[in-house]
Design a protein around this nucleic acid. Structure first.
Length: 432
DNA sequence: TCTGGGGTCCTAGGACCC
DNA sequence: TCTGGGGTCCTAGGACCC
């Protein structure tokens, strides 16, 4: 088998316990303390500090089930604070870019770097410099995997964490890699989730090593081409490309939330959907897009006896960025699928059939409608710029409702928005 | 009582066409 | 009326990611 599996072509840089580390940046007193961060609505655990992991707190577990354990060990609990995490993520990425030129951001806490030949020569030194700089400039610890393909770089990063090393370079011989891979369960591989792992296990493929050398035709037949690419990547042959620029390539925009409390009233659901449409529309305009399709869905709890999940969708006459047009469509849809007596637990809005707002098509038949649309566009952009300057929700549609309501999510332990709100700036106290 | 949110890609199957 | 291959497009659902 011809491979080049030790050539350094990619970094995968991953922030350690990112949300928990973010909370620590402005609470240095929490160093070495167990921390968990909860999902939206304070439902379940989505991030844990190293100390919390050591206490055996599982990922994704419902908070109410863990409460005794959390209290017993005095675990610090935070609601998720995405504006803070987003702001710190930007700083992490910028710090890395200051050393390597450009990164391919993969998620809020991870990025790939495709190494130029000149960088590949000094891969290890550069990686160590990144770890040091991100810690110093932003205060976030990162781990780095260095390898010949993206999948291997992810695996190398996993090894870095396993061996408590900041950087792991897969630069050994084929045999050395294989003996490492024989110890790693196959579900650790990027792209192999629970289901595929189960199918692989049924075929007696248990480890990364097994997958690397499994019969290629079988993988293609029983799984799919994605899994085949994964296998080739394990052999050191890069074949997963960078996902294309998100803003232009994006196909859907989703805003959905679970409610703080169950909702029975149609009008309350309408308020929630209106708020979700408004948020989705802001993201639409920020990406310079128009939407032609809108879907809504309302559902009761998956754990409830009266489980129901209803959706409705519409194709609009013309692509739009106008919040009001979208709100009207959503409310119209709600009237069609709402059923009284159901304890609704969540709702969502999906914008689809997206197109670039640069190539908005004029209607030759109706010039006055065109000019109305252009005036509305201007109004929407004005709304966005006021809200971005004075804070989200400063100006909003009255149909969102004016009082706090049951649908709004629980966030009882949210930290300050230290980097996004003047009122929330950290304050230093001097002792004399 | 309480169980996240936001995405992408692939495949199978049906409708429709020649 | 039935016969057949082959192509495209769309949608629903599954699987994965963080």
């Amino acid at each position: 088998m011809q491979t080049h599996s030790s050539e350094p072509r990619f970094f995968l840089i991953d922030c350690n316990n990112f949300f928990a580390s973010c909370e620590r940046v402005f609470r240095p007193d929490l160093a070495h303390q167990p921390i968990v961060v909860l999902s939206n609505n304070d439902g379940c655990v989505v991030a844990r500090s190293k100390e919390a992991k050591a206490l055996g707190i599982p990922m994704g577990e419902a908070e109410f089930k863990l409460r005794p354990l959390l209290e017993r060990h005095k675990v610090h609990i935070f609601s998720s604070n995405f504006s803070l995490y987003g702001a710190l993520s930007k700083r992490v990425m910028a710090s890395i870019e200051s050393l390597v030129g450009s990164v391919e951001q993969y998620s809020i806490d991870e990025c790939f770097v495709r190494l130029k030949p000149s960088q590949a020569v000094n891969a290890l030194e550069i990686a160590r410099a990144i770890v040091q700089r991100v810690q110093q400039w932003v205060g976030i610890p990162v781990s780095i995997g260095i390898a010949a393909s993206r999948t291997l770089a992810k695996l190398a990063c996993h090894l870095a964490k396993t061996y408590c090393s900041e950087v792991f370079f897969l630069n050994g011989s084929e045999e050395q890699h294989d003996s490492l891979f024989a110890e790693i369960p196959v579900q650790e591989v990027w792209g192999i989730g629970r289901r595929r792992a189960k199918r692989l296990n049924e075929a007696e493929i248990y480890t990364v090593y097994d997958l690397k050398y499994a019969d290629t035709a079988w993988i293609r037949r029983k799984l799919n081409v994605t899994a085949l690419n994964t296998q080739l990547e394990l052999r050191g042959i890069p074949c997963i490309e960078e996902s294309t620029a998100p803003a232009e390539a994006r196909k859907t925009i989703v805003t959905s939330r679970s409610f703080g409390e169950k909702v029975y009233a149609q009008e309350t659901l309408a308020h929630a959907l209106t708020a979700f449409v408004s948020r989705a529309a802001v993201r639409l305009r920020k990406n310079k897009l128009l939407a032609k399709g809108l879907a809504i869905n309302i559902a009761s709890s998956r754990f409830s006896e009266q489980y129901t999940d209803k959706s409705w969708q519409i194709s609009l006459v013309r692509p739009t960025m106008d919040t009001q047009v979208l709100i009207e469509a959503a409310r119209q849809g709600l009237a069609k699928i709402f059923q009284p007596g159901i304890p609704y637990a969540r709702a969502g809005v999906l914008l689809f059939d997206l197109s670039s707002s640069h190539v908005r098509q004029g209607s030759l038949l109706d010039l006055s409608a065109m000019s109305h649309e252009l005036r509305r566009d201007t109004l929407m952009h004005t709304l966005d710029s006021i809200n971005s300057r004075y804070g989200h929700g400063q100006i909003r549609f009255a149909l969102e409702g004016t009082e706090p309501e049951a649908w709004q999510m629980k966030q009882e332990r949210r930290s300050h928005n230290y980097l996004g709100n003047w009122q929330d700036l950290a304050i230093a106290h001097c002792k004399n």
